[in-house]
Design a protein around this nucleic acid. Structure first.
Lengths: 341, 341
DNA sequence: GCACAGCTGTGAAACGTTTCAGCGACTGCT
DNA sequence: AGCAGTCGCTGAAACGTTTCACAGCTGTGC
């Protein structure tokens, strides 16, 4: 059905090798021959077959990007950065969504391995993944995104989550909050543990202990998870109820905000909220959200550059890149309260 | 570097054909042979090579999804629906983002053609695309998403945008608004023209003419576009200034909302806003957004089903599926005003 | 004892490229 | 005239699968 290079060769009256040369090394072919071949290509509507091409070449012109939640704008922004760099190199990106489920992640990684992608960018689920290990053993470059590599044997691009947590914690403590809850998923992602540790460190520095810090672990790291957390918080007797929350991402923060408003709790007057990621929607929320900003596009770009460098080989050294976060203060945490109250 | 089927055959002491049979028709192989082959696969860490596989098969196990804006949650929700159905069939999805730029779209379509995808789901840019035409001529199934096919020669999955526009318009007219502006991009997408026509029809039905309807066309269909529109609106002298806006999508509506608040215009008291798509963030906005809801996941699912049916062949008839929209009223349009004011 | 069927397994062709050794024709130099 | 070098092109091998005709073998029914 589809014209092949052989059909083109026949029509142009040349060998298949020459057609290939027209396609890949046009300067080695005389102008008249080239024109004839190009005319044949045009006439037959010939389109290269990538599978054949990269069967021969041994690897494809494709990279995989595996994210925890495609509906989280943080990841679509990262994806934009990835696409930008990859497309500039003529590479396609296969975007895979895992919803933080190890099974889905495993299936996607298997598929990427079969497709012989040049490399994989991934924000992995908490559980160690045999598929990911086997990819690395096989020599496929893997770069961790938004998560620091546990050893120096691989590249990663992350944000200093401990610092991010600390900034959020200090900010709330400075505003007089002494009962703070940290809202993160129950999946045990290390980057979230780091954020919690950061908040705890701030607590200990200011109060001597982190007794005032509690943790809520909703099912999922989404708006729904935030709503769930809000319901739990309002269920706590007022005397022991936290006066502020640090959320592990903005999606949950938006959920908490919605939930609080729904329960008649005023934000920030009765309850302060700090989010994480500073997605664009944080600023547009019912109460504009204080959030810890991460360089999302830059994360994607840099991760891709590292991946491509590793794929290229030539003396690549693994790099663990860590960006600095930045606290963006908005209305959701703006009221100062008396710590003795 | 990677073990091939030949290595496996050698190690297991069988022919390559037998290995292939173990992989694809396990029941035609005796148990003892099968076990030996599986052991060899395990030992060598053999992974099938998709390129080779589908070079032989003639087509890949991949479909393309081409969207206008990956950062728009509407499209990520559609993508979820697509992935769900595709993955269930063992197909991978290549997600491509065009940012409504014909050049990017063309590049993506070329790449998808080279990869011999089984089909393409696309929300195309306004300009007719030669690449898209050539795909169709080549016999590659193409399903239009969120846009009705202009002829019966192809499948499409859309929402009745004329009705959606009419619902939005009627709602504002009922609330007493008589100067309404429609905010849509300057790209001339037909689905947006339909929405505008719907508003206009509502106007003519209620007022006899649509003189009160104006149009603003910001650069892009994003939050930034909405901000741009808001700036233009507040620049209009109060006597002629519209009292309400229908936005072609929620992203712009959120931008308009932000812009209005920034300029000290109260929503909905001084200015009412209706969005389109009803993305999850619409309900969480500073002022919860009235919006026209579309069945996003269902759109993606149905489009994929149609695509796969067409790819399968067996007497497929093209279908133009049209879903009904639904107006979800929230605070951003809730104030009733006196039409004579 | 023979024809036949059923079961396992083999080996080679085919898919559409890229790559590379090599061939003929020409050019320019000695 | 002889030779080396260059240019443009050819033809075949190779990439890793799947598929298919068919070869051995065993057992069965007559």
């Amino acid at each position: 059905m589809n014209a092949s290079i052989r059909d083109v060769a026949e029509r142009a009256g040349v060998s298949v090798g020459t057609v290939s040369n027209v396609l890949n090394r046009p300067d080695t072919v005389s102008e008249s021959t080239r024109d004839r071949v190009l005319a044949a290509i045009e006439a037959l509507g010939f389109v290269r077959n990538e599978s054949a091409r990269h069967l021969r070449a041994g690897r494809s012109r494709t990279i995989g990007l595996v994210v925890l939640d495609i509906a989280n704008p943080f990841f679509t922004d990262v994806a934009r950065g990835v696409e930008e760099v990859a497309n500039a190199q003529g590479l396609s990106v296969i975007l895979c969504n895992t919803d933080d489920e190890p099974d889905k992640q495993a299936a996607h990684l298997d598929s990427l391995a079969e497709q012989r992608v040049q490399g994989v960018l991934i924000t992995p689920t908490a559980e160690p993944s045999p598929q990911l290990e086997s990819l690395r053993r096989r020599g496929v470059p893997v770069v961790l995104v938004d998560r620091q590599a546990p050893d120096i044997g691989q590249c990663s691009v992350a944000v200093d989550d401990h610092l991010g947590g600390r900034l959020a914690g200090e900010h709330l403590l400075e505003h007089g909050h002494r009962r703070i809850t940290f809202i993160g998923g129950s999946s045990g992602l290390p980057q979230i543990q780091e954020r919690l540790d950061g908040v705890s460190a701030a607590f200990r520095a200011v109060c001597g202990s982190d007794d005032g810090l509690t943790v809520i672990s909703p099912e999922s790291l989404t708006v729904a998870g935030g709503l769930e957390a809000a319901a739990r918080i309002v269920g706590i007797p007022a005397a022991r109820r936290p006066t502020a929350a640090v959320c592990a991402n903005d999606l949950m923060a938006l959920g908490v905000l919605q939930g609080m408003v729904r329960h008649g709790v005023r934000v920030p007057d009765d309850f302060a909220i700090v989010g994480y990621d500073d997605i664009d929607f944080a600023a547009a929320a019912a109460v504009p959200l204080t959030s810890v900003r991460k360089p999302r596009l830059e994360l994607g770009r840099r991760a891709t550059e590292l991946l491509l460098a590793e794929a290229r080989g030539d003396g690549h050294r693994h790099e663990q890149q860590v960006f600095g976060p930045m606290l963006v203060v908005r209305e959701s945490s703006m009221v100062r309260r008396d710590p003795t109250a």
